[in-house]
Design a protein around this nucleic acid. Structure first.
Lengths: 337, 337
DNA sequence: CTCCTGGACTTAAAGGTTTTCGGAAACGTA
DNA sequence: TACGTTTCCGAAAACCTTTAAGTCCAGGAG
């Protein structure tokens, strides 16, 4: 808390040069004698001069700042994306202006205006689910990239996890482990994530020429639902040898109930979760095989493509980012665990 | 993505007035005839004019932007604080510039410079633990408030959860439930949180004239450690009727092992956790009685005090924010659950 | 009629930086 | 000496907005 900030004028007069020369010296440009540059740099250090980014941005029209507009930071999904983006930016000299719209369209508009008036160079919009959301980019003077939740407008740039592919990968892993009687428990059908994961499951089963055991069970994304669905499923389809769950919470609930009903995991029933939410997937017993959506990478990628878009090299379309299967004990072959 | 942005000059010339009049009309100031103001407003809407915050900030010296410097956003603790702060700011017209130092002092300095050069009006520093951290505020031209992790310098403004009081509250709850033989499992001793919570436990027990059962067991903040500690504790002190755990993860591990060893929770042993990490505290069975640190409120309070400090009304010192005991099934009296 | 008041509007400066352009000095060449 | 070239530096414009100060005019008071 202190004295007035030094300006380039102060630096120049202390060094005994004009502000133009001081500017050139500080920015490492030509046309400045080495000795003079030295003097300016010393003066700047002496005054602990920090160039005023506002003045600089006003002139150049570039703020080296991007806006991050999220609908739901509190969710588990927005955070890693945010971190990845912050990471990609932080590596350069970018700063991130964070706004949380709390799922409210009015507030979103409000934040959008605030960001635009601050002259951000670009915008990342982070969705709260993978369901497509209304575009925000119409007539905006800056490029926008959507992460996790894609824009409804296919001419926008969006990055989403490849849920379909990941689900197929999970099921193929179960098949490779010798399982043949596979059931599916997942989240609410109005989530695109639920529908995509089910689609992946079906295509993998179809390719293997196998039927799905039982109906797909849809319910909340909770552990409680996992327990409840487990009871129904074990009753209706007692001969299943594997379950693909739409989330780690559901999987954890399933495992708990299955064990209480006398089924061993993974010996009798193999279980695959989704999300790789570590507090669940690594701490439950057995540790869960699960899909990691690589959200941090997704955020980083979105940020990098925003850079590209700022430089005029936009890449329109919905880009599906590959997920990764993390194999743990819940799908080990019988007798191995 | 589009045409050049409109400036107040464009608005003024479209409305047929000078830029000064346009400015006054847009800012709702006096000395403008109603009809003129109408014309200006119409012109601004027509051009979808957004005042340039850079120019405004350059002139006024106020950016209406604050920096949020966190050491570990990925942790569970930084996020709620961040949300609370963002909430308090978002209510007004403030924006938040987010930087994550990833626990690296060099990177922190780097971000600090970046924030300062962007002329933020103030700074919130969010710690990754409640252990005091080096002050960053020396000779800074803007006010700083520390949240969660306090500054080592007592003349700074810091807000931390009242771990001592909360632990005492938790133990008093166990006493009120009729428990008398209480043990303690917690995190690593180099965490101030561990030491504070143990202190709270001791003072509550001392006040009740009761001994602590067994040594305090210190280990990682993990479910695995909770299981391990449970085995040791049940062996060494088989007659305990309650355990106060330093985190929900530890509590969840303890409950699991205790049940495997034939102890019923809460009938034989009551358990209190810490953090109210919902995925654990509400989804485990029985649901955990636990301490909620009200981190979002803490963040909001920190933000409000930063406002005050920006207005010259700083409130130095380490402020301990009250926590809240969330009572669930794991401490019900025997026979009630 | 003059003088004053106050309303409505304009002019100009300020804020901090970058950049373009021109000038001056130093030096080499004819 | 005259001239061209290179090197280093300074003056001034530009970015966009707000605001203090100034201008102009109509209308009321004396």
């Amino acid at each position: 808390m202190s004295r007035k900030r030094a300006t380039i004028t102060d630096v120049a007069s202390l060094a005994g040069v004009s502000i133009a020369t001081a500017s050139k010296a500080l920015n490492g440009r030509q046309d400045v004698r080495a000795a003079t540059r030295e003097r300016v740099l010393a003066a700047a250090a002496e005054l602990s001069f920090q160039p005023n980014a506002l003045a600089r941005g006003l002139l150049s029209g570039q703020t080296r700042t991007v806006g991050l507009l999220t609908s739901d930071s509190v969710g588990r999904f927005g955070i890693p994306v945010l971190l990845g983006a912050e990471d990609a930016f932080g590596a350069g000299e970018m700063a991130v202006l964070l706004c949380d719209a709390r799922g409210d369209a009015i507030r979103e508009q409000h934040h959008l205006r605030a960001l635009l008036s601050r002259r951000v160079d670009g915008l990342i919009v982070v969705g709260e689910s993978t369901s497509p959301r209304p575009s925000v980019s119409k007539d905006l003077p800056v490029p926008v990239v959507y992460a996790y939740g894609p824009s409804e407008d296919p001419s926008d740039v969006s990055f989403v996890p490849d849920d379909v592919g990941a689900a197929a990968m999970a099921v193929n892993h179960l098949l490779a482990m010798g399982r043949r009687r596979i059931a599916h428990i997942t989240g609410p059908t109005h989530y695109k994530a639920s529908r995509d994961r089910e689609e992946g499951l079906r295509s993998a089963l179809a390719e293997a020429g196998l039927p799905q055991y039982g109906q797909t069970l849809s319910g909340p994304w909770s552990q409680r639902w996992g327990r409840h669905a487990a009871e129904m499923l074990l009753m209706a389809e007692p001969e299943i040898d594997a379950v693909f769950c739409g989330s780690d919470q559901i999987a954890a609930g399933f495992v708990e109930t299955a064990r209480e009903r006398g089924r061993r995991v993974p010996d009798d029933i193999a279980v695959v979760g989704y999300d790789n939410w570590e507090v669940l997937s690594t701490e439950t017993r057995p540790a869960l095989t699960t899909v990691d959506m690589n959200l941090e990478l997704l955020g980083r990628t979105a940020a990098q493509h925003l850079f590209a878009a700022i430089d005029g090299k936009a890449t329109p379309g919905v880009h599906r980012m590959p997920c990764q299967l993390v194999i743990r004990d819940s799908t080990s072959p019988p007798g191995v665990s």
